[in-house]
Amino acid sequence: MTATTDFSADREAMIETQLRSRGITEPHILEAFRAVPREEFVSAERRHLAYGDHPLPIEAGQTISQPYIVALMIQAAGIAPGDKVLEVGAGSGYAAAIIGRIASRVIGIERHPQLVRIARERIKQLRYDNVEIVAGDGTRGWPKEAPYDAILAAASGSHVPKTLIQQLAPEGVIVMPVGDPRWTQTLVKVRKRTDGTLEQSDLGGVRFVPLVGEEGWSDS
């Protein structure tokens, strides 16, 4: 049995046991996870752990999120074909790649130059032409391509940055963790109504790395 066959089987098992069994049943989301090889987004020594039900460490002291959490955030944001999506904290590039199998355009913004370089290489090798990884302060968003139908943040802030809300399209959704990075945070969903007011709901407890930047935590 080849490694490719092993990873394919692991991917199918992940979809059934980690996603479908927990209420992620939308065909377009499951198909996106089926299409993206998670083993290509972790280091060689951790490839055998790629489909475990947990986050994994990556370069620059960051993590690649647990598959279920990525799926939950995509589901909560209601990402659909034709959408333009901003991902804050692109990290390995995995979540941006998954989103790119659904949305028309994905911008993944990352503050660590090493991760930007590695994620760009992976996205290019896999020929995900509708996904772009950019370098910058994620708390400031990426105004060049705003507004966005959805914004997902893979790092925890003390609040939802005002700049991200400003870059959200009417009826758009932000999904991000909020809370002290030293403890369990709350995953929140914020919808921007057409009149500009906000509707917020809580999606449960999570653990993410801190959101560092102008409207985030200090890097000290």
Rank of each mutant, 00 (worst) to 15 (best):
F33R: 08
I99M: 12
I58R: 10
S21K: 13
A50M: 09
A71I: 07
I107H: 05
I58V: 13
G108K: 02
I102C: 06
E59R: 11
R22P: 05
S65E: 06
G100S: 12
T63M: 10
V42S: 08
I79Q: 06
R101N: 11
I29L: 14
A32D: 13
G61T: 06
A95D: 12
I58F: 09
P57N: 02
G93R: 08
A76Q: 10
P57I: 01
P57H: 04
E87L: 11
E45I: 10
G82H: 13
V106G: 06
I58A: 09
E40R: 14
K84V: 07
P55M: 12
S21M: 11
V42C: 10
H48L: 08
G78F: 09
V106K: 02
R47A: 11
D83R: 00
E39M: 07
A97S: 15
E31D: 15
T25D: 14
R34G: 07
Q66P: 01
E40L: 11
P67S: 10
L72S: 03
H54T: 15
A80L: 12
G78A: 10
K84N: 03
E110A: 00
H48V: 08
G93L: 08
M73I: 11
R38S: 00
R47E: 13
Q66V: 04
L56S: 02
Q66I: 04
Q66M: 06
Y51G: 09
E40K: 14
S43L: 13
A103H: 05
R101T: 03
G93H: 05
A90D: 09
T63A: 09
I64D: 01
E110R: 07
E26Y: 00
S21E: 13
E40G: 02
P27K: 13
M73F: 11
V42H: 04
G52H: 14
F33Y: 10
V42D: 07
I58P: 07
A76E: 13
H54V: 15
P81W: 12
S65Q: 05
V88F: 12
Q66K: 10
S104N: 14
V36Y: 07
Y51V: 12
G23K: 12
I69C: 00
A95E: 15
I98K: 03
A90Q: 08
